[in-house]
């Protein structure tokens, strides 16, 4: 009996010290209001958590790791959020932080946002991407498969493996190649949808349509592609663009709204002229 109690005390102490260790790593104390939602069929609510001892050198997601580690220790369900590469390229991380997709820093994904962008004592409200087309999977993670389906509708050049011409048989002016590259840097994170007051996906869709519309490889299917992708986008239930350009402001890869103009042109051409 005594031994059991001793063991318990020991484990509590080690528990405590590991918590202290986590907390000792920094000196910022934050309050988080986090959207918790069990799954797509239940409704969610905000839950408040303390995040003590946060270091300004932590990334935002590392801060959440610390909070989660604490929750697990208390046998509470950790906060679910999507993330993978943590170097700003896979497009998996999301989070609307104090009303801003990917947080307050421009041209930065949440995983590259660091806690030095916040002050000691701050209250941070963390919400998922909110859009009918992005149902919540759990807590802060949403289902972005709508983006995949849009790409599947036509975001490709219909060639098979093999039997293609030599790479240097197609000369592409550098400016065009660079411009196409700028459109192609989209990471498909969905911040444009999250930022848009209409939850419109047009920045995302237009970036892909633009890339192929500019390159010679994309020409044969140019108009069919624009039409198929736009109609799929509509089917997914995204809103329409009202040109507020919030998407451009919040895009972590700084994709330009000129892509949307180009998409419009491509689509109208497809529907009224070239179709």
């Amino acid at each position: 009996m005594r031994r059991e109690r001793l063991e318990l005390a020991k484990s509590q102490i080690s528990n405590l010290t590991s918590q202290i260790k986590i907390r000792m790593s920094g000196n910022m104390n934050l309050t988080l209001k986090v959207w918790r939602q069990k799954n797509s069929s239940t409704s969610g609510k905000f839950v408040t958590y303390k995040a003590p001892g946060i270091s300004p050198d932590m990334s935002f997601l590392e801060m959440l790791d610390v909070v989660n580690e604490d929750l697990v220790k208390k046998s509470e369900d950790p906060i679910q959020f999507d993330h993978d590469c943590r170097e700003g390229i896979c497009g998996m991380c999301s989070l609307v932080i104090n009303g801003e997709p990917h947080g307050p820093k421009r041209a930065t994904t949440t995983c590259q946002l660091h806690m030095r962008s916040f002050k000691d004592g701050d209250t941070i409200v963390i919400e998922p991407w909110r859009a009918a087309a992005f149902p919540v999977v759990k807590d802060l993670a949403v289902d972005r498969s709508a983006f995949d389906r849009i790409q599947q509708a036509g975001g490709y050049v219909s060639i098979g493996t093999g039997g293609v011409p030599d790479a240097n048989e197609i000369a592409i002016p550098k400016v065009i190649a660079d411009e196409a590259f700028n459109s192609a840097t989209c990471i498909g994170c969905g911040a444009c949808v999250a930022a848009c007051k209409n939850a419109s996906a047009m920045l995302f869709v237009s970036a892909k349509i633009s890339q192929y519309a500019m390159l010679p490889q994309g020409q044969p299917e140019r108009y069919a592609r624009a039409e198929a992708m736009v109609l799929q986008m509509d089917d997914e239930g995204f809103g329409s663009c009202t040109n507020t350009y919030a998407c451009e402001a919040q895009c972590p890869k700084e994709i330009k709204v000129t892509n949307i103009a180009r998409m419009n042109r491509e689509f109208f051409n497809a529907e009224f002229i070239k179709g």
Binding site: Y156, V157, I159, T161, G162, V164, P165, A167, I170, A171, I172, P173, K174, A177, D178, A180, F181, A184, Q211, Y212, L215, Q217, G218
Partner: peptide, 15 residues
């Protein structure tokens, strides 16, 4: 293969 798919590799001014 990648060029035919539309991968925007870096190019020289000559294209």
């Amino acid at each position: 293969q990648c060029v035919a798919q539309g991968v925007p590799f870096a190019r020289e001014y000559g294209g």
